[in-house]
Simulated assay, not measured.
Amino acid sequence: MTIYQSLLGEDFHKLHPKLQERYALPVDVPFFATGTMTKIETGARWLNPLLTFATHWKFLFPENGQDVPFTIQNTCKLLSNGEAEVYWERTFYFKKGTRRFNAFMTIDAKRKVVKDYLGEPSLLYSDLKFDVTNEGRLLIRSGFQRVVLGKIELPIPRLLEGSVIVEEGYDAVRELFTIHVYIHNPIVGRVMAYAGEFKEHIC
């Protein structure tokens, strides 16, 4: 059973059937898709040095763009302790270069959250709360966050957190997945936002 099935329980079956397939993720059977981000927007220009710094960890990036090609791959594997982990690889192909946004996800069954380690090597940790909308879309919201410094993890004050909202759906008419992501900070406003669509490719 996938970590997302375990987390959502019966609500997993309320997802659109295509999203259920997407998030089934059998061990060592990757989900791979290609698509286009219709719009990618970052925040204020003075954030660019921070966003550029994050690129060294395959995390955030400073570029903006429209109709940006991208790929996404999710792979579930078993760790040495028997825990299932999903490796997320998101690659954005800008005209002037390629950017990556990677993450490693496991679940905390007791707290009913996904443990999301962002970047490679991980630079930021965030709790993620998963819900299903009435329309069968997947809604993800961030929670408690920490900065990761090797084996040390330091809590981030709430005013400095990057609050994340993600909504993923499936357009049955056009037969493709849709994605909307918004990262916001209460002080600086928008950190990054992107919206796009993608279609699975069977390897």
Rank of each mutant, 00 (worst) to 15 (best):
F32S: 09
D108L: 11
P121K: 09
M37G: 00
I202A: 10
I165G: 05
K18F: 03
A33R: 04
P62L: 01
V27I: 15
W46C: 08
A44H: 13
E200S: 13
A103F: 07
V147K: 13
S163P: 00
A24V: 00
Y125K: 10
H13A: 15
V114M: 12
G169E: 00
P62I: 00
L123P: 01
F177V: 09
K39R: 15
L138D: 00
E10V: 11
R22I: 08
G169Y: 00
S6T: 15
I40P: 01
E161I: 06
K39M: 01
L50C: 02
Y23G: 14
P26Y: 03
M1E: 09
L139F: 11
G119D: 03
H180D: 00
I72C: 13
W88M: 10
L60V: 12
Y93T: 02
F101N: 02
Y117M: 05
P17W: 04
V181D: 02
S80Q: 14
V147I: 09
Q20D: 05
G162Q: 01
M1I: 12
T106P: 08
G119T: 02
R137E: 13
W46R: 08
V27T: 13
V68L: 10
L7T: 10
G82F: 12
V29D: 15
D108R: 06
L78W: 00
D28F: 00
A109Y: 08
P155N: 04
P62A: 07
K58C: 05
R99N: 12
R45D: 02
T106K: 14
V147Q: 07
T106S: 09
P155S: 09
S80H: 11
Y182W: 06
I202R: 09
N102R: 13
S163D: 02
F31H: 10
V166A: 00
G97M: 10
L47I: 04
G189Q: 09
L149W: 11
C76G: 04
D131Q: 12
K129A: 00
Q5H: 11
V173H: 02
K18I: 09
M105F: 06
P26L: 14
Q5K: 14
I40R: 01
G169H: 02
I165V: 10
F177S: 06
R111C: 03
K151P: 07
T52N: 13
L15G: 11
R111K: 15
V132T: 04
A195V: 02
L50W: 12
R99W: 06
M105G: 04
E153S: 09
T36K: 13
L124K: 03
Q20I: 09
I187M: 15
Y125S: 09
E41C: 07
T98N: 07
T38C: 08
E135H: 07
V68R: 02
